[in-house]
Design a protein around this nucleic acid. Sequence first.
DNA 1: AAGTCGCCAATTGTCTACAATCTACAAACG
DNA 2: CGTTTGTAGATTGTAGACAATTGGCGACTT
Lengths: 221, 221
Amino acid sequence: MTIALPQIKNLSIREQSLDTLRQAILSGELKPGTALTETDLARQLGVSRAPIREALRILNSEGLVESIPYHGTTVRRLTKTDIEEIYSMRSLLETYALERVMRSPETADMQRLRDIVHEMISAGDAGDIIAVNALDRDFHDTLIEMSGHRVLHSMWLMVAMKVRQVMALVNRRNTDLTLIARKHLPLLDAVERGNFMRARALLKEHIATAGDLIAEDWVEP
Amino acid sequence: MTIALPQIKNLSIREQSLDTLRQAILSGELKPGTALTETDLARQLGVSRAPIREALRILNSEGLVESIPYHGTTVRRLTKTDIEEIYSMRSLLETYALERVMRSPETADMQRLRDIVHEMISAGDAGDIIAVNALDRDFHDTLIEMSGHRVLHSMWLMVAMKVRQVMALVNRRNTDLTLIARKHLPLLDAVERGNFMRARALLKEHIATAGDLIAEDWVEP
DNA sequence: AAGTCGCCAATTGTCTACAATCTACAAACG
DNA sequence: CGTTTGTAGATTGTAGACAATTGGCGACTT
């Protein structure tokens, strides 16, 4: 009777503009400090200024752009301190998620994590940097989701966006893909064995080293 | 030469509308579930819909209202789970702030906290519930600020807003003002003596009991 | 020459009108 | 009589025009 049809979604121009702009910022295409002139954006996207303005207001409250009255909106600049704070907050949120997940573990969720890690290792061996990054994000996203804590999740989204942006802005030279991928294994192991102290230590170290490496090379504009 | 003059600030209609609406929501004047029709709001505030829409988009990304396309915006409903999550997040953020503050304590900051607590006790003895609430907020705000962690602070603002809203929505019957005020003293003591474990335990308990008391009496709509 | 004033270009802020979409209810159809 | 289809009213979504504000540059003043 009913066959599978793709869901038609009529996204408002505001949402489309928002997604486009956010994606451009997170991918590093729009670099920090870039001016976002409403008229220009409207012309480029072929729409009017109204939905653009609403999208910019949202990006502003997400902390991705900065607006000065009658003067313009720019992509928010990132300082070394910002990056350190972002990673310390990430560590705090993920550690808390881990604590909650391990307090009442679900086997189905564990399987999801295991699948992701295995895929990540495969992608790492194949040298597919895009896939490794996507799966790495997926791993940590899943961990947060598993906590079943919606407020935590919404806070995480904010931090995760900035992490994405930072990762896109640094040129990671010494990126050993296989190493990154395989670093998730012992963590997963500790989680499945219920060794919370060890899992927490591994997770914290994992995040801290990532953050430190990036903060080290950061050059202020 | 230069005398003290009050700063003249020309706030945009968007900002004024935003402040007005946010205040109304946080004070419980606009109850969860209330429909916020753009045309009505515009008429009531004597402005056009454009700035109202932008304000609503901001409130939406702050999680205070909920929008459904072509259907309207309503004040976001709060479930018992929401409240539990808000308070657990509050506990997490404040505990982290405490940890950072006690790692490198500043005597000037300690004095600020002490002043606030003493004022709070005075206000409690005088039965001034408004002042006690304001000073209680001030105490916890100050603690967060003292951490010098801007990302933490921005996350805290989100949570603190919801805490204010929840506090305004419950009718606290058994509110012993003097007790609330004096409960801050041992915490402050532990902080000043550098006893982190004790300070953390007191803070966590302080927040948890507050949250539990509210969540207990919460009646879903 | 230093300072002040006034104008100009660029940009954002606001308003009004119109288009698109949704829900519910009524009408047409088998 | 139940199902489907059309329509009305309300609400949000978008567009385009106009107003307000800012910062900078140049001319004028003393």
